Simulated scan of single mutants.
Amino acid sequence: MPVKKIAVLISGSGTNLQVIIDAILQKKLNAEIKIVISNNKDAYGLVRAEKQGIKNMFISTRDLTCEEYSEKLLEIFNKEEIDFVVLAGFLKILSKDLVMQYKNRIINIHPSLIPSFCGKGYYGIKVHEKAIEYGVKVTGATVHFVDENADTGPIIEQRAVDVDDFDTAKSLQQKVLVIEHEILVSSLKKLCNDELKVIGRRVIKKGDKDEKSIDKRI
């Protein structure tokens, strides 16, 4: 099976990027990171990429509409012959045109159990602050395909953690980060091995014995 070419988009420290880099080095992923792109010139994730000799660049969002920014990204993806795009803490919405051209080929990691605590304004520590404020007993992380809206694409994988009585937003963030890393690699592995199929809003494993019956029900 050909090695999949992926682009990773970041806005911050790049811990999820590092997990992908490590998984590739350990030969857990049938993938190669062709390029890392950030909308933040000070993102440490760019340093992580540089250390590994991975092509990386900062593209400013200043004076660019969502459509113009996405068009720049699309040009790069086409030039690098990108198979899949990973949004690893990328704090910018992509245009509908880009998402449609890469339908079911862009994935995002979100630090909650979607559809809880997600959508516009829910990112970083804010997600965990809201979970603590609401008093939930369970939260987690979600990997999903990206569509034209924020955090609404088909869900690939989710995992939960308990919220303890004395958890703070910070301590909860650290607990969730552990499973974020695990399900990001797990989901990306399935994607790069061509194991996933999307039926309506359901993401299933190709060849599943119930695949045909799911198709009919949807």
Rank of each mutant, 00 (worst) to 15 (best):
L46Q: 10
D151H: 12
D63Y: 14
L73F: 00
Y69S: 01
D22C: 05
A49L: 09
D147V: 06
L73R: 00
K41Q: 15
Y69W: 07
K34D: 09
L98W: 07
N149I: 03
I24N: 00
Y44L: 13
N56H: 11
K96H: 13
N30T: 02
D22W: 01
G124F: 04
H110M: 06
Y44P: 00
K103V: 03
F145Q: 08
Y44W: 08
S70P: 06
G135V: 11
P115H: 10
I125M: 13
I20V: 15
L91Q: 11
I155M: 11
L94W: 04
L64W: 01
I114M: 14
N40T: 11
N108S: 10
I82L: 08
L64P: 01
V85L: 06
F90R: 02
I76W: 03
F145T: 05
I106F: 08
D63S: 14
L73Q: 00
S38V: 03
L87G: 01
I106A: 07
L73A: 00
D42R: 13
L64T: 08
V85Q: 05
I106H: 06
E75P: 00
K130S: 05
E129P: 04
E81H: 09
N39M: 13
K130A: 14
I82N: 05
R62G: 03
E50F: 11
R62Q: 14
S112V: 06
D22V: 00
R105N: 12
Y123P: 00
L94P: 03
G53Y: 07
V36Q: 03
N56A: 08
N78Y: 10
H128Q: 15
S60E: 07
S60L: 10
I109Q: 01
D83Q: 04
V143W: 05
L87E: 00
N30F: 02
D97E: 15
E50M: 09
G135A: 13
V86W: 00
D83I: 01
I76E: 13
Q52V: 03
T15K: 11
I109M: 05
I155R: 12
I125S: 09
N39R: 12
V127I: 08
K41F: 14
I125F: 10
A49W: 02
E71A: 11
D147K: 10
A31F: 00
F90I: 05
D42H: 13
I37Y: 05
T139F: 06
L91E: 05
A49Q: 07
Q52C: 12
H128A: 03
L64R: 15
K126F: 15
I59D: 02
M100I: 12
I37T: 04
D83R: 02
I107E: 04
S13V: 07
E148L: 11
I59S: 02
I35F: 07
V85E: 03
E67M: 06
V99W: 01
V47F: 14
G14M: 09
A150H: 15
T139A: 08
A150Q: 13
L113W: 05
C118H: 07
T152W: 08
L25S: 14
L29I: 06
I59K: 02
D83L: 02
I125L: 14
N149C: 10
K34V: 08
I21K: 10
H128K: 06
E32V: 11
V99K: 01
K126W: 14
C118R: 04
S38Y: 04
L74W: 06
K27M: 01
L46P: 07
E50V: 02
S112M: 06
S116L: 12
E80P: 11
G45Y: 04
K103W: 03
I114A: 10
K120D: 10
